[in-house]
């Protein structure tokens, strides 16, 4: 909207066009649902889209779930209203962001409408493969370090729910997405009975009861949080497996008389830290890169390599104490 009048501050406060406020009312409600493959993101969005459609709204839903089987990101845009044009939600336009995984929720925060967006997030943490890219022994996982309290300060309305734990207590961890549906339902105007009807048609028959329980639990949790009975920002983060920080050193014992320069260790080392020296005998060229994975030892047909680790047994229970 450019024009001479636009520069005037007094005019900016008024609607630019008479029809603008009317158009505003016709704008769709945007719900963005994100998570990790296998968590049930698509099921949540399908239930919501089906319900909105049954209420006579125009619904558009679009999703990306290509890498789902690899534990990759899955997101689904659901838009419904009197009229919906684009199937995707622009950045900063989502009215509600439902995240089934903590880091995914943080990743999609820029899509949330600043000032009024509602952020509903499971504190479940699924560490993606790229967080482990540094395979150096003792390397820290590069997972997000933000606490729920820090995130809540940045959104208009935020809920961090340990939905996975709640669902597990009900008897089926996989109903965590329905706990979040319960939470989501409090932010929308559809009656609870209709939600339950929609859910019953989307979950497997055997699990209808546990899913309905999960839905009611999610609803009551949000109601408690709104009353202040549950401290939403105090919800603890779900525990995350972490590797020990104590470094350990790796030493390669190479028997040069046995090496036949077949090059297998050099070419198959994942860190590419070996090489053949001038005599065509394997040697460790970059000791700092070696992670002690033992691939060279196992694949050497001539038994010329032996990997020595100072601390061959890594006790994961000791690392459990050092949570975020």
């Amino acid at each position: 909207m450019s024009g001479p009048s636009a520069s005037s501050s007094s005019l900016e406060a008024k609607p630019l066009r008479p029809a603008a406020s009317a158009a505003k009312a016709r704008e769709p409600l945007n719900v963005l649902i994100v998570g990790v493959g296998g968590q049930g993101v698509i099921m949540v969005s399908k239930a919501l889209a089906w319900l909105a459609q049954s209420k006579g709204y125009e619904v558009k839903q679009s999703e990306v779930h290509g890498m789902a089987k690899r534990g990759g990101t899955v997101f689904s845009h659901v838009r419904f209203g009197p009229q919906v044009w684009s199937p995707t939600i622009p950045k900063g336009e989502a009215d509600i962001l439902v995240a089934l995984e903590w880091a995914e929720g943080l990743r999609w925060l820029p899509y949330l409408k600043p000032g009024s967006g509602i952020f509903i997030c499971d504190t479940k943490r699924i560490v993606p493969p790229f967080a482990c890219l540094n395979r150096q022994p003792g390397a820290r996982l590069r997972y997000s370090r933000e606490t729920p309290a820090e995130v809540k300060a940045h959104v208009a309305e935020g809920y961090a729910i340990d939905a996975t734990q709640m669902a597990a207590e009900l008897g089926n961890e996989r109903a965590a997405n329905v706990v979040l549906i319960g939470a989501l339902s409090t932010a929308l105007d559809f009656p609870a009975e209709d939600w339950e009807k929609a859910l019953s048609s989307f979950v497997p028959k055997k699990t209808i009861q546990v899913n309905l329980d999960a839905f009611r639990l999610g609803r009551s949790w949000i109601a408690d949080a709104r009353r202040g009975a549950t401290a939403a920002e105090q919800a603890p983060l779900a525990p995350m497996p972490e590797r020990s920080d104590a470094p350990y050193s790796v030493r390669l014992e190479i028997t040069p008389q046995w090496c036949k320069s077949c090059d297998i260790c050099v070419k198959l080392c994942p860190e590419r830290c070996l090489r053949l020296n001038a005599e065509r005998v394997a040697e460790l060229a970059q000791p700092e890169k070696c992670t002690g994975c033992r691939l060279c030892e196992l694949l050497c047909p001539d038994f010329a390599i032996r990997v020595h680790l100072d601390r061959p047994v890594v006790d994961a229970t000791a690392a459990q104490g050092a949570r975020l």
């Binding site: 046995w258 030892e297 038994f303």
Partner: peptide
């Protein structure tokens, strides 16, 4: 507990070292 099962296995313990390489 993650146990590195290859750690305590040295193939040379089971070889006739005088025949090697």
């Amino acid at each position: 507990t993650f146990v590195d099962s290859a750690a305590d296995f040295d193939v040379r313990d089971y070889l006739r070292m005088d025949m090697m390489p």
